[in-house]
Design a protein around this nucleic acid. Sequence first.
DNA 1: TGAAATGTTGGGGCG
DNA 2: ACGCCCCAACATTTC
Length: 476
Amino acid sequence: MFPHTPHPELQIRHSQNNMNTLLWFQRDLRLHHNPSLDWALSQSKPVIAVYIHSPQEDAPWSEGAASRWWLQQSLSSLKKDLLELNINLHCIKGNSVEKINSWVNKHNIDSVVWTNRVEPNRVKCENTIEAQLNKQNITVKRFTPGLLPSPSKFLTLSNETAYRVFTPFYRRLRAELNFSDYYPKSSQHIKNTISKEEIKLKDKYLISNLDLLDTHNWHSKLNKYWTHGEGSAHKMLDHFIEDKILNYIPDRDYPATDATSSLSAHLHFGEISLQQVLSALIPLIQGNSINHSVAAEGFLRQLIWREYAQYIMYHFPHTALKPMNEKYKPNFWKDDKEMLQKWQQGNTGITLVDAGMKQLWETGSMHNRVRMLVASLLTKNMGINWQHGANWFWDTLVDADLANNSMGWQWVAGCGVDAAPYFRIFNPDTQSKKFDKNNAYSNYWLQPDRLINDEIIDLGSSRKEALVRYKTQIKN
DNA sequence: TGAAATGTTGGGGCG
DNA sequence: ACGCCCCAACATTTC
């Protein structure tokens, strides 16, 4: 090296003067165990944080009404929490490809970090952004969320293709989980140094600019059912681990009980990470109580279903809009708008189905067993395209998640990965007798003076018709 | 993570 | 005592 050439590292340091790191929040709306945040703060440069709401890019899967309501609350919570670290969260509405590019150029940014998503539109945008940034010699750092190091590298051992069946996927992932990794409930952070840029930016990019809330105020009733943000997510988890998990296995199928974790929306928005939940389960799995360990394993298996849905969405992006099994063309399904509407409004006359649809409308959520049976009624008995059901759930569920939604609906409709066999058709009356014996759930969600309409569909004959339809389809 | 149809078994009533 | 029928309870098969 020539004596007067500065050491390369010094050169870099020098060029970093006045430069900032852009931290792009997506579905990781938390401070603790957030690798992107940790990385950003470790760069010894001021951090500029953004959230970008991109309904156009995400179409037709831009967030539904219930989801936007949750997002609004979750962002306020994050924004407040971030202030403790001297980080302002700037909320921007627009296409992420353009916005990242313009922010990088306007605000002296030389590195960008984010946590990946798996939705096809998002993957496309993220890859475009990365390519653009690489061209401009901007450092790009991306993290993969969840328990899998990388979905692209997790393939079947026999022929190195993506797992299409849950159980082998589950066994492998479960076996490879490293219980000595610990993901802290709370992380120690160094505080951000506020950049000169922040003065220009201050208070211009408010959450309200995102226009997340519908003007007709449907969402206001949701307030009484949910709390948001990282703190709430951990409270829910603690409550589940301490008070509920022992009843999880025996009670989780009974919709009148409060036996499930209710973490789905928190997990979807990344208010809490899957690894943090795993960390809370590990002591139970490894402890002396067989009951605790069985319960924790059972719950973990359900969490791995989430991971599997993400994995499938990554490997088979077309499943957001088309069935995994492409035999099921649009013309396989019936087009019955009237039936669809009665289903949506909970006016089928079938008690447990109507109760579920009311719970959904009222709270933005529905017990999982009831989700399965209302979906079975729509797709199998009514023969209506699963996508109509998926759209309705997408707009009304606070935990709407493209990967889980697409997989779940196709599973029930019998056209997805590892799908329920075509002949598995739920009888909502039988399900009611089994899982809501005393009608505690139905009575809770249905008005006592509700006119008991006749059931709009004959369960027996529609079942038989569905069997014929599917059987014919499989032959062809 | 289903339901219905069909098959099997065994106990009890009864001629 | 025996055979017969009925039927509940459970098991297996089928869609």
